[in-house]
Design a protein around this nucleic acid. Sequence first.
DNA 1: CTGTTAGCGCGTTCAA
DNA 2: TTGAACGCGCTAACAG
Lengths: 335, 335
Amino acid sequence: MATIKDVSNVAKVSIGTVSRYLNGYYVKEVNRRKIEEAIKELNFKINMIAKGLKTNKTYTIGVVVPSVTDPFCNYLIEGIDSELENINYSLITCSSRNSVELEKEKIKLLKNKRVDGIIIMPINSDSTHILKYFEKDIPIVLIDRLLTSISSDAVVIENTEATYNATKYLIKKGHTRIGIVSGHTNIYTGYKRLQGYLDAFQDSNLIVDNSLIKYVMYQKGEGLEEIKELINLKDKPTAILATNYETTYSCIKYMLMNNIKIGKDISFFGFDNFDILDIVSPSITTVVQPIIEIGKESVKILNRRINGDYNDYPLIKKLKTKILEGSSIKEIVSK
Amino acid sequence: MATIKDVSNVAKVSIGTVSRYLNGYYVKEVNRRKIEEAIKELNFKINMIAKGLKTNKTYTIGVVVPSVTDPFCNYLIEGIDSELENINYSLITCSSRNSVELEKEKIKLLKNKRVDGIIIMPINSDSTHILKYFEKDIPIVLIDRLLTSISSDAVVIENTEATYNATKYLIKKGHTRIGIVSGHTNIYTGYKRLQGYLDAFQDSNLIVDNSLIKYVMYQKGEGLEEIKELINLKDKPTAILATNYETTYSCIKYMLMNNIKIGKDISFFGFDNFDILDIVSPSITTVVQPIIEIGKESVKILNRRINGDYNDYPLIKKLKTKILEGSSIKEIVSK
DNA sequence: CTGTTAGCGCGTTCAA
DNA sequence: TTGAACGCGCTAACAG
């Protein structure tokens, strides 16, 4: 593959001149023409590797997500990718496959690759194992989940507010026995979202029944057993609140499998609204996160750090959620 | 950030020794210890950029897919990513967003980045615009779709066989008026899959009614109008065959929206089985592709090319599909 | 087994 | 404005 040296030979100008031309500096008209011809003739493409070695930039950022087949992560990546296009960066995608070990591995890999920045959606809130990667050499932005005892840039949603509003919504519809499929509290979003549920009960002067709280893994296929327990409680819940996409999915699956009529036998409040919910009937009332926005925002912050702008560091951006109303929640009129 | 030179200084051995240590060659026990200490002390990480400049390798491959929010592409990426882990490569993911322009752009970008190889799922079969990127400098493997007039490594499925078997299955169940939601024939998979449908009719000595063939875009949200036409034909089809995930999804959505009972009012044969079909009732009979396998296989071929093994070039690997039986197909007993 | 050194392709001085 | 020369961090070849 042709190098800058080959171009300088063919064009009969010096390497420096070619380099300057490539980087947008002014060169004499005659030389410009000669260089352009040589480039075309040799089909020269600049070697970003060599350039990166010199400029200490790779024009690449890395992202580490727990899964690449989870729609939440995919939309995150879509947001990141589309924003990256604006600044001409490319993206190395890494899946930590929900393994802390792999997460470490991948971050190390990205650092070796000298990416200009890293976006991480951490597996859990435990920062001890990850802490050492947070030297200031490469900027890192956290998404979706924060890490304990690390002050870092991050983009998350108003988690507590999201479930608070959802729970309040259910209470207003007359529900007091509301089951929640919560994540484990060592996961940032699990902890925060449970908090919103508890707050809503407190603000409404209602007592929380702990048997209505089920802790499940935020992973595909998890939670069926817990949902079963919830639904078969002696004193049954009249409504169930799921707190992320995976649990929403599991709830729907369980209820369909067991012929439980959503919105009739039991009310249901979901979390995250992907295609899938389009084809469930009745339509599901859900908390909707601005996922694409989260991705885009994280890139914007990261890019400022890459360019040395640490003015507002550390910045924790919290995005608002919305409620999308469907027909999965029945109003209970008190007798 | 510490360099190999710093390490050699601290460890009091030569640069060469450090380099050899890093690359797995044998160094004297004493030196090994000193080097390891120095590395830990300096928190040294090898600079892959510099290594790449020398070895002309980036240990990175690129993949270009039409979308990063389409489950088919996601599972493809999952397969690629997991296989890449075995050979310690990382992956630059690019979305062409179903735009030929962007597809060109992304390939060019990957070439500039000097990735060691590229995997492409082309948008359509038209190779003219893409042809010039197929110089032998960087190995390319096509997936899912072939390109006209380019001989290249590729991993696809037995497309014609897949729909042939599905159509035969329907015919055996007594269906003769089978509507097909086909892709446009300028897309490799669209063309091949339609062929299977036609072949099955011919082999069964049945006449194909062209009004039962609808051509739709293989993209999210497409096809609702065509499905409507199909279902509202004067002489209605008794069964419908979708030919990819997007059209399967659209069919299900249309039927649910219009309260058409799948497996009762009309039989339905889907294509690709993601989570989503888990929560549709009745369960859908589908053609199942070995998607993860396609991804893994493409990496295996690519890796051999990267290592200079062009023995069986060009290799077009065709993987088999299976039929997953659900309850969406009714048997018609002739009166 | 180790130290020394050239050079990968490029950007960037410094003189001219 | 341009050309020559150095160095980014690393590998590989050679001599020891």
